[in-house]
Simulated scan of single mutants.
Amino acid sequence: MTAISLKLRRIGLPRLIVHVSVLLIVILWLIPTLGILVTSIRDKNQITTSGWWTAFVGSSQTSAVRLGDPATAKQEGGKFVISGSVFENGATGKVQAFGTRVQEPAAYKVGQTVDLGEGESLLINGDGTYVQSKATAFEGRPKRIYLTVTVPPTFSLDNYRTVLNSEGLGQAFINSLTVTIPATIIPILISAFAAYALSWMQFSGRALIIAVVVGLIVVPLQMSLIPLLRLYNEIGNIFGVPSKTYAGIWLAHTAFGMPLAIYLLRNYIAGLPKEIMESARVDGASDFEIFLKIVLPLSFPALASFAIFQFLWVWNDLLVAIVFLGTGRDQLVLTGALNALLGSRGGNWEILTASAFITIIVPLLVFFCLQRYLVRGLLAGSVKGG
């Protein structure tokens, strides 16, 4: 029996299947993300001519150029000669072939003199230099030719500068942070207090409140959005508060996020050792002191797990942001700005990919910073409880 088969037996088939499945899921998520990142830093012309997986080996492009002005021709050995380079404005590359018709852009090889008829010949080298000669004087406009050029890979942050400055995503990015950070912190603070009360404080109606919280988890957002908006507008009219404010969207996300937060945190806090709570009470600690000094530090994994979910939900939200914040240029969040770009710049892949990566970079950072607490907090919150 080989060493590989022994190792497979030691791991076990079920565990091996789990590992392979997780690896496949990681690959399926990683490939599109890598594609967006690579495309976002590529040149516009390279994006339209080759896939992102060829970004590091260069790309082949076909372009039309005009040779030198006939007025610059010089007489050499009884012929009129125009020389120069097909690359202009600092462009670089290696010419593979050329042609005089758009239907045959690679009709001739580089490095050999081609007879174009009527006493005219053309030589184009791989570095782009050319020599055009004719027995008689050149007339009319400069000659148009078509080139097949291998362009070296080009990477820059110009797409991101364009998106953040010209396309207005810089303001949308700030708007998203302004919405997401408070809308993540507020429900956590309120839910942590509620979860402690439902776990360790005795009062009438506690079981009913827990049942209501569990029921609210399954209430669809779309069903409660309009009643909540009407209630908010009515309260705003009474107190003279504008309807499209950050406070409104913070309250909306808090209301939609609190049921799940209370459920997860309550299950986790209820599973904390009872002896710790009793010892603190014997020492004269109040409920607030127990909550602040004991429960909160021990509940950090559960708090971090919900923070990830709430942050991702609010950051990727579009519906609540449009309803409670508005659709003005200064009010749009990132998802709204990206949706607008899809309609106006749908063909500009360099703009869309840079915008998409700006949209996902913050959630990725949040997840990687807190992911070690995610599984621990969710598992503890799902199996503990009382």
Rank of each mutant, 00 (worst) to 15 (best):
N45C: 03
N45Y: 07
N45R: 12
N45V: 07
I47G: 00
I47L: 08
I47Q: 06
I47K: 01
T48N: 12
T48K: 14
T48G: 10
T48V: 14
T49Q: 13
T49N: 11
S50D: 08
S50C: 08
G51S: 00
W52G: 05
W53N: 12
W53F: 13
W53C: 07
T54N: 11
T54F: 10
T54R: 09
T54G: 04
A55H: 00
A55R: 01
A55N: 04
A55W: 03
F56L: 09
F56N: 06
F56C: 00
V57C: 00
V57L: 07
V57Y: 05
V57R: 11
G58C: 06
G58N: 06
S59H: 02
S59K: 00
S60F: 10
S60R: 13
S60Y: 12
Q61G: 08
T62S: 11
T62H: 13
S63N: 10
S63R: 13
S63P: 00
A64H: 05
A64M: 10
A64S: 15
R66V: 14
R66P: 01
R66W: 06
L67A: 02
G68K: 04
G68A: 15
G68E: 05
G68M: 03
D69E: 14
D69C: 10
P70Y: 02
P70K: 06
P70G: 04
A71N: 03
A71D: 09
A71P: 03
A71I: 09
T72H: 10
T72V: 14
T72Y: 08
T72N: 15
T72D: 15
A73T: 10
A73C: 09
K74C: 12
K74T: 15
K74F: 08
Q75R: 12
Q75N: 13
E76C: 06
E76K: 11
E76F: 07
